[in-house]
Amino acid sequence: MPTEDFRQATDELFQRNKVETLEWSFDFGFSGAAAEPWCNDLLDKFSAADSLTGHGVELSPLSATFSRRQRDWLAQAREEFQNRRYRHASEHFGFSEAGPIEKGAPLSVPMNEQSLHRGKEMMKRFADAAQCPVGLENLAFAFSLEDVKRQGDFIDQLISEVDGFLLLDLHNIFCQVANFNMPELELLNLYPLSKVRELHLSGGSWSRSISGRRLAVRRDTHDDAVPREVFNLTALALKLCPNVEFVILERLGYTMMEPEQQQEFRDDFDTIREILDHCYV
């Protein structure tokens, strides 16, 4: 995230050359926002080293209608991927644009013939714009247990259209394990694990259960340290996914304003490093 607290938290990691890969939400500037020079310097450095991955936020791949906004997004993405070298590009499963809403958080879709067709078409457009491998990230959000159980196979069908990859977000998996009482291994095995090229780790939060069916609802808010459960899932996923190339620690900007939070972020980074060293010894 191109924010000052993120810069402060990560400066030591970059200075000590601990970071091997950088991931950039490449559509950050599509609406006119500009990243600070320090951020652009990092992006250019990692791109030159062939160590930059792209993660879009606003495409809305499963929207029913192909909009002018999406057309413009793809054109801007094409230009971005011509200007900077990325190892691959990902987006979020789901949709966020429809009716009166132009953009927002991705939500799940009814997984039917129509959404599959629309999604496949959009993945082809995405791949054509990026001119590098493209993939989809699993969602934390699901309207129902059925959504949870079907998401893996549906994503597999979408990425297969473009010989793409799965970005497996382990905090999102944790959210679904917690919210729908799914066993971890059972849920992971519903995904095309051989197609996982990248893992995401992050923290989140708990909110109140409106219905009272649960003690609390786990939220993928990206605003806290990585829970122990997600580190455990990381060790498990690394055993199950033979083709992982990138492991990314995520954090929302303006959520590490205190030095203690920034240190916690660095500690989480080091824990990931230890897990990787243990798994790939």
Binding site: S96, P100, I101, E102, K103, G104, A105, L107, P110, F141, A142, F143, S144, L145, E146, D147, N179, S207, S209, I210, S211, R213, R214, V217, R219
Partner: peptide
Amino acid sequence: YRDYVDQFDPDMVAVASELMGKWARRKV
């Protein structure tokens, strides 16, 4: 879509509504 909606978990609908409130941008 009635079967699909029948399965909606009210907690998740509440989460979706909150996400809309926080992140959604209306078309101009």
